[in-house]
């Protein structure tokens, strides 16, 4: 026992902890800046906190005015909901078609020419960068009110995103697969149809489902600016201070979006199990 403790004493005398390498303090600085910027932003926004309180009271009051929901306009509302659904379906499908056609020449590993790929990608990111609602506003000015405008806006938004993600899926393909077919002397179209499409199909499908989910949400609100569908019913009711009617519309919208999310979760699960 005594021998052991002297041994330990010796070790303690001899051992010196290595010097700690300089820690990367980037994160600490970033956090500090974030906290400062947070308070600076609050100061700049200069909220009227009295209004925050009175507004919350008013908000809760509005909520009480909403119940019970007024379902007297249900035929009208459901027809509008159906229209929103149809707008989402058509917009997504056109978006998928455009995305599918443009993704192959845009993917770096199979593009016929790098410039083509660069052009398509730039175009897609431009489409993507402008929110769907702003596209809807542009189309309203250009082609007028109605569901057709909604379809165009959704198509543009969906195409912008799908070109990007489809391209990424294609670029993730193992180059060996393409090389093997190239070695057999296959042409561009046969490489795409024989090697590329079968490999990326599952990924494409799950992106399509995800996009439809998002488009369903978008199409319900497009109506707020006059592009057809259920969003218009909501704005209309709110502007007339008919909160109970608005609540019914909101419930319908929630159910629509929520059930699409449920179905798409199911589909994703099934695809996971298969693929």
């Amino acid at each position: 026992m005594r021998i052991e403790s002297t041994y330990k004493q010796n070790i303690q005398d001899r051992l010196e902890m290595p010097i700690k390498p300089k820690k990367n303090i980037f994160l600490q600085i970033a956090l500090l800046v974030a906290v400062l910027f947070f308070f600076f932003s609050l100061y700049q926004l200069n909220f009227d906190y009295a209004r925050l309180i009175s507004g919350t009271g008013a908000f809760l009051e509005t909520l009480t005015l909403m119940v019970p929901p007024d379902i007297s306009q249900w035929q009208h509302v459901l027809a509008a909901a159906l229209e929103s659904f149809q707008v989402a379906v058509l917009g997504t499908i056109f978006g998928i078609i455009i995305g599918f056609v443009l993704a192959f020449p845009a993917a770096d590993n199979i593009t016929p020419h790098p410039t083509v790929a660069w052009l398509i990608k730039g175009f897609a990111s431009l489409l993507r960068a402008i929110p769907t609602l702003i596209w809807a506003l542009i189309f309203i000015v250009a082609v007028g009110l109605g569901p057709f405008t909604g379809i165009l806006a959704i198509t543009v938004g969906a195409a912008g995103m799908l070109v990007k993600v489809f391209t990424q899926s294609i670029e993730e393909i193992d180059y060996g697969v393409i090389e093997a077919l190239k070695a057999t002397g296959a042409g561009w179209f046969s490489i795409v149809s024989q090697a590329v499409i079968p490999t990326v199909l599952t990924a494409f499908l799950s992106w399509c489902i995800l996009r439809f989910e998002a488009d369903m949400g978008e199409s319900t609100i497009l109506g707020a600016v006059g592009a057809g569908g259920i969003g218009w019913e909501l704005t209309h009711a709110m502007r007339a201070y008919k909160f109970d009617q608005a609540f019914f519309v909101a419930v319908v919208i929630f159910l629509m979006v929520f059930s699409v999310e449920l179905v798409s979760n199911r589909l994703k699960m099934r695809m996971k199990n298969i693929g």
Partner: peptide, 15 residues
């Protein structure tokens, strides 16, 4: 803690 790590031969790897 450092001594323990030294004992299991990892004195150089502590950081």
């Amino acid at each position: 803690a450092y001594e323990l790590l030294h004992r299991v031969g990892l004195g150089e790897q502590i950081y």
